[in-house]
Amino acid sequence: MADPSPTPTVLLAEADIARIVADLAARIAPVTDDETVAAVLLTGGLWFAADLTRALSRIGRNLRFDALWLASYGDEKTSRGAIDVYAPFQRPIAGRKVLILDDVFDTGLSLAEAARIAREGGASEVLTCVFARKPWPAPRAPEPDFVGWEAPNRFLVGYGLDNAGGLRGLPDICALD
């Protein structure tokens, strides 16, 4: 019996991802310091956040690291339109600049909720950064401060992006449609 799942089509190769991450690090480093908290949105943003914080370290910026575990998709291919908060910040962020990191910006709900949580936690400034921004009809949450890649309006997998929890570990970003 043939596998009914579509074959992933590479849209952005691993080397291109590395180049984009290095460019983002160069743009972010001047507006952050070593007291800035890089807060990844789990689970999808983990791959990007790990690469970006290492890229920042290579150019002399060693941010603190934290995470928020938010979900709006579950195992579905579309957002439910609501955000579940599974885990808040692990350490105090009051008086610190917070850089929120996520894999993809589509509805913007997760990024907006994370920014709200950071502001309510007393962050002195909240910056947002996403690896990819997908086209989305207006209205949506405020645009991120930093965007690495303008993604097509396709279902993306790889580099942390998933299909019901699968295919996150692909080294490239692929379309699965």
Rank of each mutant, 00 (worst) to 15 (best):
T7S: 13
R133P: 00
G60T: 05
A115M: 03
K134W: 12
A112G: 13
A25M: 09
A71L: 01
R91I: 10
A87V: 00
V130Q: 04
L56S: 02
A67R: 04
I20E: 01
V40F: 08
P135E: 01
R140A: 13
A38S: 12
C174A: 14
Q90Y: 07
D66M: 13
R61G: 00
Y159N: 07
R80N: 09
G166P: 00
E120A: 14
A118C: 06
P144K: 06
L46R: 00
T78C: 02
A118M: 08
G148C: 07
I59G: 10
A49W: 06
A2C: 06
A13C: 03
V98D: 01
P6H: 07
R61W: 03
G95L: 03
D23L: 08
D177V: 05
T43K: 15
F131L: 14
T32N: 09
A29M: 10
I173C: 02
V10K: 09
R54H: 11
R119L: 12
V147F: 10
G148F: 00
D3L: 04
I28Y: 06
D106H: 11
R154L: 14
L42M: 15
W47G: 08
L170T: 11
L109E: 13
K77Q: 14
R116E: 14
L176N: 07
F65R: 12
L52F: 08
F105G: 03
G121D: 03
V37N: 07
D16M: 04
T32P: 07
S110M: 04
R54I: 02
P8C: 05
E120N: 15
Y73F: 15
R19S: 15
E14I: 00
D75F: 00
N153W: 03
R80M: 07
A114V: 02
K134T: 10
A50P: 04
A164I: 00
D103R: 01
L70A: 05
F155E: 02
A112D: 15
A29D: 11
V130I: 10
L101H: 07
A123W: 03
A67P: 04
P144E: 08
L156A: 07
E76H: 12
D103I: 01
R19A: 15
A151V: 03
D75S: 15
